[in-house]
Design a protein around this nucleic acid. Structure first.
Lengths: 126, 126
DNA sequence: TTGTCGTGCAACTCCAGGGTTGCACATCGA
DNA sequence: TCGATGTGCAACCCTGGAGTTGCACGACAA
């Protein structure tokens, strides 16, 4: 009933949920800056435990915003722009849809106003 | 430490948090479709109470995604595309930033690889 | 004025998820 | 081989917020 025309069910759902958390956004920024850090490295840059970071990375991974490559005994994480780009596009489309609808409503309102004015001018026009 | 170059502190924060909830997105869609409904009207279209809807509308309003106009004894809500557009742009910029960084990293890696190969060719080069 | 309808406020329940700690397992260097 | 380092798993606490119900207040119509 809600996302019939936009496909909300898609990754967009997970991406928005993932981006909702400030720590997660911080993590993404950090990821972009550090290149391909490990969870342990990231933990050194944030005031939370490594475990918390791993959980966040799992969420980001599920949203397709991040990938983890195993390298020996460590796991190197990197950012993935694709999902973000897709979501940005989704949002832009939604916004322009709203714009369209609002413009239509405004136009209708103005038309109705004019017709009302015309009705006032010809009261017997009923 | 996180939003120094993107200005994360801005409305974007609130917008993302607001969009994180599926019910809220549903509400936005409904808002766009119905034009300028009241909380009560919206409640008739969703499986939750009016009070819950009012709370959601408050969140959306705080994020700048919605406005409420008083009209007599009722309040008519309407969608506001501006904040969404802004957030979409923010996301797109972030994504392209990631792309830039990833490209740089990749290029550096390839360069290092070539130099390593050159080093192999001239083992005494140290 | 009275009844009705819509909104606003407040208290309450409930659970998802952010964060922690503790420990077991695997990998690397010596 | 052994110690060190990094990861993975599991149990646990605790707060935020989604949702509910109940009621008081304000605005409209008769």
């Amino acid at each position: 009933m809600t996302d019939q025309h936009h496909g909300d069910v898609s990754p967009v759902d997970a991406v928005l949920a993932a981006l909702a958390d400030p720590t997660r956004r911080q993590l993404l920024d950090l990821l972009a800056v550090l290149g391909e850090p490990t969870a342990t490295t990231l933990a050194e840059h944030l005031p939370i435990s490594r475990q918390a970071i791993v959980k966040h990375l799992a969420v980001l991974d599920a949203a397709g915003l991040v990938t983890g490559r195993r390298a020996g005994r460590e796991v190197r994480y990197a950012v993935r722009p694709a999902a973000l780009t897709m979501t940005a596009r989704w949002m832009a489309a939604l916004a322009s849809d709203w714009d369209r609808r609002l413009a239509t409503i405004k136009r209708l309102a103005e038309t109705a106003e004019q017709e009302a004015a015309a009705g006032e001018a010809h009261p017997g026009g009923a």
